[in-house]
Amino acid sequence: MPKNLLEVQNVYKYFGGIRAVDGVSLTVPENSIVGLIGPNGSGKTTLFNVISGYYKPDRGRIIFDGKDITGLKPHEIYRLGLVRTFQNPRMWKSLTVFENVIGAARDQKGESMVKALFKRLWRKQEEDYARQALHWIDFTGLDPVSHMLSSSISGGQMKLTELARALMSNAKLILLDEPAAGVNPTLARKIFDGIERLRREYKLTFFIIEHRLEVLFDYVDYVYVMHRGRIVAEGRPQEVAENPIVVDIYLGG
């Protein structure tokens, strides 16, 4: 039994009368790929926002890697090794793709306003990070556009840049919010192949929101289904696919 990297314990998040997350508990085991599905407005992204620190939960706890991260700020959670991507890619527009990737590196010495003046204190780290960034750029196939401004690349390439940034952060757990939304089926499969490879070769753990179930179900170990802020079903992909509740939610609305 592998240990649980992420534990969400009975988390609630209400916005006024809207119960966006209404008592969710779930676990993500180490080195696994876990999916989170559900119709639009079921609270998936809100749950991601709560886990990654953008919203404070009204109740409940979030345990990451044995530490209670409830109420920590996003940049603090990031430093512990949990990173998230966005449904709509959020590029740093005036930076090149290469800079977008290297900029996500963790604990950069040269980011201090004092140390920045002394190049010898951070040059070596910066060069190492540059090599690492180029490695992930190669991995994600962004090499041909790496010198271009991130505002001038295609939507699919932006998604890949998001992924490369997340990889650059050296995180243990990556939350992906619809990594294959809006990209063509071939690229969608390619992205998930990459995720599978990352899990195998780099021992990473993924927690993925995805609407394209036909792709997602081929890759995930376990799936949670959310509806109106609650987990209504969970299990292995084929179990979930056959679960009448899930079929009802997706087909019956």
Binding site: S52, Y54, Y78, F86, M91, G110, A116, W122, R165
Partner: peptide
């Protein structure tokens, strides 16, 4: 000198998209 460094890059990152900046530490 100050800006030709990860510090300068950090400021631009924060300027361009603060939500993503927070997510990436």
């Amino acid at each position: 000198k100050l800006m030709g460094s990860p510090f300068g890059r950090k400021l631009r990152i924060v300027r361009d998209d603060e939500v993503a900046a927070e997510a990436y530490g």
